[in-house]
Design a protein around this nucleic acid. Structure first.
Lengths: 151, 151
DNA sequence: ATTAATTCCGACTATTCTTATAGGGATTTC
DNA sequence: GAAATCCCTATAAGAATAGTCGGAATTAAT
């Protein structure tokens, strides 16, 4: 039940883009450096995000990547579903039609996986990139005021 | 974000034991046959469950396995945590102390994984083996009455 | 035009995890 | 003593994970 690095790195990269939304393209190199990720590996991940249409690229010198929608219109679920496939604890409750098991009526455990999936979706579809940005800005502000965020 | 077969098979095996709670030991072979699982593989899983203390074994002929507590006192979370390790979308929010990352204060994505873990725990700790049994019995009853469970 | 910065693409690899399988030893009942 | 059963360790094929590598194509600035 772990998320792979794809999902985690992808969210961080998207957060990085969200923090700079409206200021032109951001290169992979700067994202990778700021977030401490391998540039080449990140390249693969962002390719998926581009194909899914939630980022777009500008090629050539001074190019880079941009969000295609406002940060408040992109959820964590959008990102993770793109990078990790359907979010579901088991294949039998995933959206993927190929894996519907035959005994859906009889399966007593299915109810567990259904409830689990529902709750996971709720959380991931509720949090947007903008929420993360607001959170980051708020913390920064609190730190500048000398307020200790942790107790 | 998938559960492995360990978790799923384990829950099915434990459900099988729960349905026969109070009727003496159940052999691995009968569980494996009824649930359609590999006997040898299931053996490894149930060894973990035994070491965790939620099943006990009786050796020798006519031996088998028994739940150590009533089905209503065993949650799905107990089973899955035993077989798959701490339930957490990332290591940084797992109970495992070894993997606490250094920048817990700064990490903007951590809030996502914390909320996710909380909701997952809620679901898995809310459902007991007894719930599964009740559900199975209810379905069986409905079918006998000629009532179609699905619409 | 050239150069430098950048995205884009496909192939390759090392490591770990999953999902078993196999064989034999120990224990208990009949 | 035979049969049934749990117990333990080792092995292994296949898939997934987490990258790495090299170079082609594109574009902005000079």
């Amino acid at each position: 039940m772990k998320l792979s690095t794809k999902g985690r790195y992808g969210v961080r990269a998207m957060f990085d883009l969200a923090m700079r939304y409206g200021s032109g393209p951001v290169s992979l190199r700067t994202i990778a450096e700021r977030q401490g990720l391998s540039e080449h590996y990140l390249e693969q991940l962002i390719a998926s995000l581009r194909k899914a249409g939630i980022v777009k690229s500008i090629r050539g010198a001074y190019g880079g990547y941009l969000l295609t929608r406002e940060p408040k219109e992109i959820t964590i679920g959008d990102i993770i579903r793109t990078l990790e496939g359907p979010i579901a604890p088991t294949e039998c409750v995933s959206e993927d039609e190929d894996f519907q098991c035959e005994n859906t009526e009889d399966c007593v455990t299915r109810i567990i996986w259904e409830r689990l999936k529902e709750k996971i979706d709720e959380v991931l579809d509720d949090i947007t990139l903008d929420d993360l940005c607001q959170n980051a800005l708020q913390r920064k502000h609190d730190q500048n005021e000398g307020f200790m965020y942790h107790i």
